[in-house]
Simulated scan of single mutants.
Amino acid sequence: MCVALVVSPLSMAAPLEIVGRATVVDGDTLAVNQRRVRLWGMDAPESAQHCSTAQGARWPCGRRAANALDAHLQDKTVRCVQRDVDRYGRSVGECFVQNESVNAWMVRSGWAVAYREYATRYVEDEQRAKAQKRNIWQGAFQMPADYRRAQRAAHARPTQAESAPATACRIKGNISSGGAKIFHQPGQRDYAQTRIDFEDGERYFCSPEEARAAGWRAAKR
């Protein structure tokens, strides 16, 4: 399989182009010719991230976003135009398949959001996907950047063991296997055995009002 790094000889200032068959790393990162390319201006759910359907059921949106990207690129030549290099050494750019922007396609298809912190080019694509309730927009989800910040905060703690936090925030927000968000208060029957998994989006709350505002309902017992 022939792949190449192509730099235009016409100008030393011309952007680097990376051309070849792509391997999908996740919903917003490709590997082309042994180079990592972060798709510019868009942000897809993280691989372990879950979203909710309109009925509240959880589904693995991060994994499915990557699968959708993989299916879209299968057996096609990808041309990526580098715009920058990020702190991880990855090229950051816009990629094309048959002159169609892969970045725009991901956002327009509802598999990613416009990454407004860095660009606004795909905002209209996002608005269209949101209006049509496509994929991640069919229900509730956490913005990928917010999800990453939450994960970093969780992993920065000394431990993610079940011990209650050293604050007044002792209400446990648990998510059932069916996607139901239920909070348990100290003294309730299932409080002690309820475990909190931060990576699945579960959390502690400081009051019942805070839990309800976030979309959780009270446990019946």
Score class of each variant (00 low, 15 high):
1 M>A: 12
2 C>H: 11
3 V>H: 06
8 S>E: 12
9 P>Q: 10
13 A>P: 00
13 A>T: 13
16 L>Y: 02
18 I>A: 05
23 T>Y: 04
30 L>H: 05
32 V>E: 03
40 W>Q: 06
45 P>M: 07
47 S>P: 08
50 H>C: 03
57 A>F: 01
59 W>S: 03
60 P>S: 11
60 P>F: 09
63 R>C: 04
68 A>N: 12
68 A>S: 14
69 L>N: 03
70 D>W: 04
82 Q>P: 01
84 D>Q: 11
85 V>Q: 14
85 V>E: 13
87 R>I: 12
88 Y>D: 14
97 V>R: 07
103 N>I: 04
108 R>P: 00
109 S>N: 11
110 G>L: 02
111 W>S: 00
113 V>T: 11
113 V>I: 12
114 A>K: 03
114 A>C: 07
116 R>H: 05
130 K>Y: 00
135 N>E: 14
138 Q>D: 10
138 Q>T: 11
140 A>E: 12
141 F>R: 00
142 Q>G: 01
148 R>D: 08
148 R>E: 13
151 Q>E: 12
153 A>Q: 15
159 T>D: 14
160 Q>Y: 02
164 A>M: 13
165 P>N: 12
168 A>G: 15
173 G>N: 08
182 I>F: 03
182 I>D: 03
182 I>K: 03
183 F>G: 02
191 Y>F: 14
194 T>V: 13
199 E>T: 14
207 S>I: 10
211 A>F: 03
